[in-house]
Design a protein around this nucleic acid. Sequence first.
DNA 1: TAGATTGTTAATCGATTAACAATC
DNA 2: TAGATTGTTAATCGATTAACAATC
Lengths: 220, 220
Amino acid sequence: MKQAKISEAVVRRLPLYLQALNELLRSDVQTVSSQELGRKLDLNPAQIRKDLAYFGEFGRKGIGYDVSYLIGKIRHILKLDRNINVALVGAGNLGQALCNYNRYSRDNMKIVAVFDAHPDKIGMMINTMRVQPMEELKQTVEALQIRIGIITVPASAAQTVADQLAEAGVEGILNFAPAILKVPPNVRVHHADFTTELLSLAYYLERNAEDGDDDDEVVD
Amino acid sequence: MKQAKISEAVVRRLPLYLQALNELLRSDVQTVSSQELGRKLDLNPAQIRKDLAYFGEFGRKGIGYDVSYLIGKIRHILKLDRNINVALVGAGNLGQALCNYNRYSRDNMKIVAVFDAHPDKIGMMINTMRVQPMEELKQTVEALQIRIGIITVPASAAQTVADQLAEAGVEGILNFAPAILKVPPNVRVHHADFTTELLSLAYYLERNAEDGDDDDEVVD
DNA sequence: TAGATTGTTAATCGATTAACAATC
DNA sequence: TAGATTGTTAATCGATTAACAATC
């Protein structure tokens, strides 16, 4: 019974821990307490300890956590101790930026193939990759053992691409398009559309002074 | 007492509702029930009704919600019924992609200025915008009444840029850099670093067969 | 040893879901 | 009217935080 009932909230914090720990490693810090880590990440220390304890006993009482040891453990938990090949579909501005970015490569994730449906994109070079037509998706996914697909096409095309990726056999999809995707239960979708974050940010702006209506007032 | 105690989870769903409603509007659908909306968004209908009820009575019993009326209401709640000017800092690949994207412009949000610290970027044209040096940030924010800043610089520079944006007077920051920012309490930061989503996606991949150790087993 | 910090249980808090009277 | 669906209260569920014994 492997990794039963670990909540998504916990899993989503693990990359954050990794990020902070890598920073500490670069500063040659050997050991860190849940309190220090909590201060860095704006999280409750008890929560950090509890999260980690789901997976094992990684710390030492009275001491804290060994930074590089914990990095290794979290990388293992997230399955980042193996190379994971990624395909990107949609060679537009955003897609190209993500290919060039490739910061996650140090985490063993790498975009190894790029696809686009548009004839004028096909054949174009991004880094060392040639933009391939959608017809080559399935065979490439199999040949390169690609396990994750990134979608950077317009919302109107996102569902079709998701279907093609699922059919090609990827296990996970990172979706940048503002669309809710329907996929088979064996495929997991994570949403990366930042317009949600941008629009919800507007909610917290001050209303301008001249706009004094009370439509959205809440009395309790 | 305006908009007291509305939880972040609720606010974050509002842009999703907007997205689905806009789709319905394009399909000339007049009216929608919480059930239909829930099906489209994979959400519980009761949750949708409850979310909306925080802000007013927008539906009609036995009928549902008028699509374009509800769009107007949510846009008002999110303060998207006024133009909101945005500045972007970091004219790299990602920054350029976001400037060109500008899909959110139909939501009255618009990137109106681009900044970069690097001399070889300054003066470059993105769409109709000239990349400006950081020295011009404050005066431009004031002149154009910019209220939100987008950070697309490397993690190492993110905190400095956040300080400069806060000092220039923005009310909100959308941060794409993998870094936790410390800002004054009057500034709100939303996180848009997709590496978190990508790395947590790896957790849900199948372990390869040959990798049979039980380190992260959970017994309960 | 005394001080610090973990792992873990119990308490609290908040968010989601179910249920249903009101009503179109 | 009968059927549908809202707004809202109550019940449930889950996640966060506090507290503390164990121990380095």
